[in-house]
Simulated scan of single mutants.
Amino acid sequence: MERGFVLNVFTPLYIFKNSENIKIDNLKLQGNYGFQYAKNVEIRNSHLASKDAFWNTENVTVYDSVIDGEYLGWHSKNLRLVNCIISGTQPLCYAHNLVMENCKMAEDADLAFEYSSLQAEINSEITSVKNPSSGKIVAQKIGEIIFDEHCKNPGACKITVESQVKV
């Protein structure tokens, strides 16, 4: 496999904005808007601390990584997260065809998946899920499931929990 590069210092805003066809391994990113509008990206074994990290991205896959920052994956298309740890408020909202495999969500990852179409396998508790559009969410626990007056079809997303936590 091709090796990427390692950035272990604060990186500029929008460092990979509009990038295409890149593979990254062992990246330590600390800088907001890291991959906005990027396409065809593969990231492995990395730690990404980036607000709006995957805003409006397309065909991005992240393996074995920690992703920390608010509003992760908003308006993304075909974002796939495998064996990742997700933290930050309102992650992965407005995402289209989001796939999460064997992922964990930190306690601060609240109000997740708003208006997203997804297939998510979460091996931890999710603090809260709000108005998912369609698909399936499987989690060990969910603290709160919110369907407010703006939710168009609450039955379009199947949600399965090992045990429901009372809030």
Rank of each mutant, 00 (worst) to 15 (best):
S76E: 03
N123Y: 10
S46P: 06
P12N: 12
Y94F: 15
F113K: 07
D25I: 01
K39W: 00
N102P: 04
L72M: 14
K28D: 13
Q119N: 11
G31H: 09
D68S: 13
I67P: 01
G34K: 07
E114T: 05
Q90A: 10
N78V: 00
C103I: 03
D64V: 00
E101T: 11
S50H: 07
N102I: 00
L79K: 06
I85K: 10
I122E: 03
Y14D: 12
L92A: 14
P132M: 09
D110V: 07
D64K: 00
D108S: 11
Q36E: 13
V138Y: 06
F16E: 15
V129K: 02
K77I: 06
N40P: 02
L7K: 08
I24V: 14
K51R: 13
V82M: 02
K104M: 12
Q90K: 15
A106N: 02
K136G: 07
K136F: 08
F113M: 12
F5M: 13
T61N: 01
S133M: 14
A139P: 06
H96I: 07
A53P: 10
E20H: 15
R44P: 00
P132I: 12
D25F: 00
Y14R: 13
S87W: 01
D108T: 05
A109Y: 03
H75N: 13
N45M: 05
L98M: 09
K77P: 02
I15S: 11
D64W: 00
Y37T: 06
G135F: 04
A38H: 07
K130E: 05
H96N: 11
I24L: 15
T89M: 04
Y115E: 14
L7D: 14
S133V: 06
K39S: 05
E121D: 15
G88K: 06
S87R: 03
E114S: 09
I86S: 08
N32T: 06
F10R: 13
G73V: 13
W55I: 05
N18L: 10
Q140M: 09
D25H: 03
L48H: 03
P12A: 07
G73R: 15
S87Y: 01
G69K: 12
G34Q: 06
G31P: 09
H75L: 13
D25G: 01
K39D: 00
N131C: 11
V129Y: 08
E125G: 08
P91Q: 07
V62T: 02
G31Q: 09
K130R: 15
N26C: 05
A120Y: 04
V62W: 00
F35K: 01
L118T: 04
F113C: 10
S50M: 03
K23Y: 10
A49Y: 15
L13F: 13
H96E: 14
A95V: 10
D64P: 02
A139R: 14
F5K: 15
A106C: 11
F10N: 09
S19M: 08
Y37L: 09
